[in-house]
Design a protein around this nucleic acid. Structure first.
Lengths: 214, 214
DNA sequence: GTTAAATTGTGAATCTTGTAACGCAGTTCA
DNA sequence: TGAACTGCGTTACAAGATTCACAATTTAAC
């Protein structure tokens, strides 16, 4: 399925989870508004998962939820490793732990001896040398990469070699991994600079508007 | 200009900044590889900014850098506000401060009395009530929204009302702001779940491969 | 049982994004 | 000098995503 759509499916699921006890049915336009997409897009996204709503009653919340989860989660483990426990890593740990009980971060890795063997948010920090060992033993398939840029490529390759098939990469550098490994890049600096660009442009537009209407 | 392309322009600039002292010229395919895009796409992205490279010598690093910055940064202030100094906010502050000297986070806001008036990473934390006042006084145009979901919409509206025209939103909820305000949503939970989905799928594919080749 | 209202699922159209191809201009080397 | 490279800028094309529009369908009301 198309990548963007999968991302939105997770949003639908998250929203539905909160609705689950409040209502039994929901219309596409209602759910769409809560998530911030158009109703047409939501319906199109749902098409491939095969769950059908009924006209005049919409989707059954529980049923759609189950159907979404079945499609989103595979048969695998749903455990995650965090590589790099720096500033960002230490923030991501409680962030994900608090939000998603289904996806547990069960192992972290760092080179700092101060951090090794400590337990943060219920997650043990291992020495980076033990990356392959622990990932293989726990059969972890997903890793969050929050290491400095210079070590990112190496860490990614080692993780992939140990069996990881999905990477959430915060390092601003293209990773080099086998094609079957899925990589999602999150570049926060890029995002902020992009916002800045359009924010500045809006200032110009506003000023232009001002002068023309003046 | 197209939104995706602007994001890539920031990547080109960032990479060029590091190259600036190492080499005077660079070819499109070299820079493209460092950033992780195709050479054709890079050249295409550069088209609208009007900077011309020369065949057989490529682009002049310093010149392209200047041209990029001129197009990316507007005439405005280049200052940023951080709204919400929780786990994520406290991590983002040093993250952005360390990485981008051009884009300075100069004000943070929170409701926690413990944090108010403290200075973190050279950035003062104000009471949330003073949001409008400080943003207007400092003429801040860009804000990072790292508050709990329930307060995000309200904070966004207040920021927009005070003159902010660009928002980097980490709250997993659609904001309601005037159309001219640019919003970039970063949903970390969605990103991780997306990675998980494709990681699990890869496991299936691998197993399928295994059985067929077996 | 029939009608009316509302919503779904989906084909077609539109818009956006990425890729490939190609002419052109410098540069090098004979 | 000119012939052959090499890489740039641009245009044309393909792929992908989003929106539009509407027939089909279900329920509620009468």
């Amino acid at each position: 399925m198309r990548e963007r759509a999968i991302g939105r499916l997770t949003l639908y699921r998250r929203t539905l989870r909160e609705l689950d006890e409040k209502m039994t049915h929901i219309f596409s336009h209602q759910l769409a508004k809560m998530v911030g997409v158009s109703a047409a897009q939501l319906r199109r996204d749902l098409m491939p998962i095969g769950y059908e709503g009924s006209p005049n009653r919409g989707y059954e919340v529980a049923g759609l939820l189950a159907s979404l989860s079945q499609h989103l989660d595979g048969p695998g483990s749903h455990t995650v490793a965090l590589i790099g426990v720096g500033n960002l890593g230490r923030a991501l740990l409680p962030y994900f732990t608090a939000r998603n009980p289904h996806l547990r971060v069960i192992a972290a890795f760092d080179t700092d001896p101060q951090k090794i063997d400590r337990i943060i948010c219920g997650c043990r920090v291992y020495a980076l040398e033990r990356l392959e060992e622990v990932i293989a033993a726990e059969e972890i398939k997903v890793a969050i990469l929050a290491v400095p840029r210079d070590t990112a490529i190496d860490c990614a390759q080692r993780a992939a070699g140990a069996g990881v098939t999905g990477l959430l990469n915060f390092a601003p550098i293209p990773l080099e991994v086998p094609r079957q490994v899925f990589v999602e890049n999150v570049d926060l600096t890029m995002a902020l600079e992009k916002v800045n660009h359009f924010a500045q442009r809006t200032v110009e537009v506003r000023e232009a508007d001002h002068t023309t209407t003046d």
